[in-house]
Simulated scan of single mutants.
Amino acid sequence: MTPRQKTHAVYIGWSAAVAAALVAGLVGGPVSASAAPRSHAVGPGGSIQEAVDAARPGDTVVIAPGLYRESVRITKALTLRGSGPGTVLTPGTARTRAAKGCAEEGNGICVTGTAERELAGVSVRSLTLRGYRRTGLWASRTDRLSVRRVTSEANGVWGIAQHRSVRSVLKGNTVLENGDAGIFVANAIDAEGGATDTGGTEIAENRAAGNRIGVTVRRVRNLSVRNNTVTGNCAGMFIVGDESRPAAGAMTVRSNTVERNNLFCPATERLPALQGSGIVLTGSEATVVRDNRVRDNVGTWPMSGGIVLFKSFVGAANTDNVIERNDVTGNSAADLIDGGGGTGNRFADNVCATSRPGGMC
């Protein structure tokens, strides 16, 4: 063994001893290896799914920088942590699709509980998801899911999406050039029904650009959408409800920057053509839209404008929403639009130049 190799071996032994001593000191004595959370390392050429399968609840899977051609299904409480944007997951070949169901459905990472038991306490952070046919990160029936510092880009439908989930934190992520919404939170995508209570889900400090819609929240209640930067999409934010009960709403949309969402997206089976929409409420009740900067969203389509109240396509009106203290300028067809009927909607103390009907600025 060379002197350099001996030094390296001594350093590794010293580091392991110090780490063991620190752990023992923190908990007041030796820790059983079977009881302590473990860390599982994955490097280029390794399988993330195999590490996830080997992990126990509470463990952490750490992924080194590199390109990983696979999908990953998570069905236990653990942390999946990349090493920053350079940790990239992209669709794999048939031979590498170990995540049963997730890859076949066209998703990158799937976090899934069951109807009988929600999956609680999963954390995904610091990695990139790119080019999946459906969704970069898909979550279903989860509780306290945390998604932070994830980049999800160029996926066929959604960047980060969840349904039937509660108390999530989606924070500090970047969603770019996805086919539908960059971030999508819904009651259910596989059934009709009233809005569900998210238990205080947070959509915060994300950046959305180049998507069809930056952020969509559909048929849910009790959540906050705050401090996001949404620019360069066809539409900025959609708050969507329908005629079912309970109605969508009872949420806060505040301190977001929603500017220049002027890409053009053609009509689909569900929506007309989109261009120049800032914040759109359709079929919402008791939602507070406050302290947002909504500027230079310009279009000539039905939902174009700064902050737009629009009757849902099944006829549900907006009721009892509060639109106040927003900076809404440079938008067209108008800065503020109260359309589609509804009662109890209040516009107050907004900085704006044009409104439909007139007199709201």
Rank of each mutant, 00 (worst) to 15 (best):
T2K: 11
I12L: 11
G13A: 10
V23G: 08
A24V: 00
G25M: 12
L26Y: 12
V27N: 08
G28L: 11
A36F: 11
A36W: 06
V42T: 01
P44Q: 03
G45H: 06
I48D: 00
Q49C: 09
P57Q: 01
G58A: 04
V62W: 14
R73C: 00
K76N: 10
L78I: 09
G82M: 10
V88D: 01
V88Q: 06
G92K: 05
R95L: 11
A99S: 08
K100T: 02
N107Y: 14
T114A: 07
A115R: 08
R125G: 11
G136H: 06
A139D: 12
A139W: 11
A139V: 04
S140T: 03
R144M: 12
R149T: 10
T151E: 04
E153G: 07
A154R: 09
A161K: 01
S165M: 01
V166P: 12
G172S: 01
N178A: 07
N178L: 12
G179K: 04
D180G: 01
A181C: 07
A181F: 14
A186W: 07
A186R: 03
I189P: 01
D190E: 08
A191D: 03
T196A: 04
G200C: 00
T201K: 03
T201Y: 04
E205P: 00
N206P: 07
A208D: 08
G210E: 12
G210C: 05
G210H: 06
R212E: 14
I213E: 10
R218I: 02
R219I: 07
R219F: 08
N222K: 05
N222G: 09
S224L: 14
R226V: 00
N228D: 10
N233L: 13
A235S: 09
M237N: 07
V240S: 10
S244G: 12
A247G: 09
A248N: 06
G249D: 10
G249Y: 02
G249M: 07
R254F: 15
V258W: 03
E259G: 07
F264L: 14
A267V: 06
T268W: 15
R270F: 13
L271Y: 15
V280Y: 07
E285L: 02
A286P: 06
T287C: 01
V289Y: 09
R290G: 02
D291R: 12
N292A: 05
R293I: 06
R295M: 15
R295L: 08
D296V: 08
T300M: 14
M303T: 07
M303A: 09
F310N: 01
F313C: 02
A316T: 04
A317Q: 13
N318Q: 08
T319F: 15
I323N: 05
R325H: 13
V328I: 04
T329E: 02
T329P: 11
N331C: 12
N331E: 08
G340D: 07
G341K: 00
N345P: 00
R346A: 13
A348T: 06
A348L: 12
N350T: 02
V351W: 15
C352V: 02
A353T: 11
S355K: 09
R356S: 15
C361F: 14
